[in-house]
Design a binder for these strands. Sequence first.
DNA 1: GGTAGACCTGGACGC
DNA 2: GCGTCCAGGTCTACC
Length: 315
Amino acid sequence: MGSRLKIQTPSDFNLARDVCSYGYFLLAPNRWDVESQSFSRVLELIDGPSSCAMDQQPDGSVRAKFDRRLSREEQFIARKQIIRMFSLDVDTKTIRAFHKVDPRWEKSGRGRVFRSPDVFEDVIKTVTSCNVTWPSTINMNRRLCQVCGRKSESGFRGFPSAKKLARTRLGTLRGRCRVGYRDQRIIDLAKLFTKGAVNPAWLEDPNNSDDDVFAFLLTLPGIGPYAAGNIMQLLGRYSRLALDTESLRHGKAVLKMTGTDNAIMKQLASHYDQFGDHKFRSYWFELWEFYQSKQGPAHTWNRDEVGSAFTASNF
DNA sequence: GGTAGACCTGGACGC
DNA sequence: GCGTCCAGGTCTACC
């Protein structure tokens, strides 16, 4: 029988709401099961990948069931990865501070944003979301897992590690994973992570300023202003926006902004200034509310059915 | 500092 | 079935 872990959660944590809070929950190897309202994926651990099924217990804790026995050290790493994905290290006090600045989310309790088990996966997922429509992002992540991800004992594949992608051929990424011109950038990023030139601990250390981290991200291959802003929020740093064509659509359709695209971008930046260090979450939950008004609650979304919906040109 | 064009994939559309 | 057009963010060259 495989290992089981019980992970304590903050009292305001809600698995369905907090997993289904950002589009990455729809990207492989993540699987949200609408029927059982549970989440599963393969986690990369010391002795290899392991499939992990997670649900929320009546006492609020998260129960994680693995497809094999984990060593004590693997249990520690798996726990750390789950805590990162669900932002369980963000306590109720921090969420309350956000609600004080933006009371619109107090009733729903929104505050946590879903992310990957590690920084590398978040960075690559962000690169696969640039300059493509959402269905292509879904396909790229599926193929990256199918082609380069390692298989767990129960037959599911995980997200490829930096070590694996650093050794992957350009032709494999372009021809089989269909990542297009991103092939070289993905390999370069993977090499920077494996060499230690990108240090996730430094990026996540709250002692380092948002300005320094943002400036560093902009030096990475394939990372421009949008991608850097998005990675910032995935690091738990919400003081920046990640503005793209979706933001333009939101500015025009919902916030009734007018003018050229450049002018609207400036208006957006100034509009969200009122939320200070929380501005990304205020912006993002507005966008998420809009999607839910069109597609229904996110915890009822099926990846294959809603996959084509999330593109500015579709709204 | 601002702008134009190339980089790729996949979907929509017309024939 | 084929060709064309378009959406999407980053990067480089150029003014």
